[in-house]
Amino acid sequence: MLELTKVSVKRGKTPTLRDVSLRLPAGQTLAVVGESGAGKSTLIATILGLLKPTSGTVAWCGAAVRACRPALVMQEPRAAFNPALSLRRSVMEPLRRGPAEGRLERLCAGLDLSAEILDRRPGEVSIGQAQRVGILRALIAAPPLVLFDEPLSALDAVTQKQTARLISDLQREEGFAALIVTHDLGYAVAHGDEIAVLKAGRIEEIASPRAFALAPQSDYGRQLRDAAIALGSLEAAA
């Protein structure tokens, strides 16, 4: 279980996270929703130990998060790969030895990736393909925790739907805990076991997707929901 207790982060003088407490049980999905600037990237960096919290604790099953070798799927799929290396090299990075028998093939099949694509460089594949290879790299070493930083926002609408389904199918098979950071409320409600609303570095509310879609508890949550309904990304009667 991922557990954040009263985590605050200051960058310079202004705090970017204030007293954030979150719990993500193993195998579950927590969707963190917020606008750009709400502190989503800081949250991810802090969970991964790339930023030290000014106060509070971050832990996976009571130990440092990095010890469980968490994986990250990034917003910009191409930037997540060294442009000079083949995708295959980058995908293999998390592995000490070669991949377990058949795992690469199984994941590739699940992600609708042909083996040939892995021999290309990041600049030679489409963004959608690059993002699926990004997910492949994240899962190759079977991590118990995977963080998704706006995994869909660089993709076009069709690819978004397809990738979102791939992620949840793989999660069912692999059983990892997923923390998905997104500004897309429709995606969060459709795929999260729980929804956390982040605003200006603070958690406004945490609720089940159903409860949230029906009746957000915070003013900001209500604004977000109404805007999403108006835009058609969330169905009014969810």
């Binding site: 990250l72 990034m74 997540a80 790299r137």
Partner: peptide, 25 residues
């Protein structure tokens, strides 16, 4: 702060390997 360097760190590559494969080129 490049994505691929962060990924290499998360993957647990040694500092030397990161320098060799991601910084040197």
């Amino acid at each position: 702060t490049r994505g691929y360097v962060i990924q290499a760190q998360l993957a647990g590559m040694s500092g030397l390997a990161i320098a060799r494969w991601h910084y040197l080129p």
